[in-house]
Simulated scan of single mutants.
Amino acid sequence: MKRSELQATLHKENIQEDIKLFKSTLSRFANHTELTSEMLHYLVKRINVNKDGVPTIIFNFSFMND
């Protein structure tokens, strides 16, 4: 197997692991019908509002790098 093929395989495996972790993390909140402050603080890094009042939500994915 070539080096580039090995790197591609490792990258794919890392992505698959990240997806599993993301699903597992989101499953913590799956049975809720309302957004709680815990969910908001865990999933959202910050919310920017431009001068026209349009919000941009910056999600927190740092839990995937723990």
Rank of each mutant, 00 (worst) to 15 (best):
T36W: 00
M1T: 15
I47V: 10
N14G: 00
R46P: 00
A8Q: 03
F63M: 07
F61H: 12
M64G: 06
I19A: 05
H41F: 13
G53E: 06
L40H: 05
V54Q: 08
I57Y: 00
S4Y: 02
L6W: 05
L6Y: 00
E17N: 04
N60D: 03
D18R: 15
L43M: 00
L6V: 05
T9V: 13
E17M: 11
D18P: 07
S24I: 12
Q16C: 10
H11T: 15
M39Q: 12
Q7D: 07
K51C: 11
Q7H: 08
P55A: 12
L26A: 01
E38L: 11
S4N: 03
R28N: 05
F61V: 13
K51P: 04
I58H: 09
V49R: 03
H11I: 15
T25I: 14
I57Q: 01
F61K: 13
S24C: 00
I19L: 06
E13F: 15
N50R: 05
S4Q: 06
T9Y: 15
H32N: 14
L26R: 11
R3Y: 10
D52E: 04
H41C: 12
A8R: 06
V44C: 02
V49Y: 06
E34F: 06
I57R: 02
I47G: 05
I47S: 04
Y42K: 15
Y42A: 14
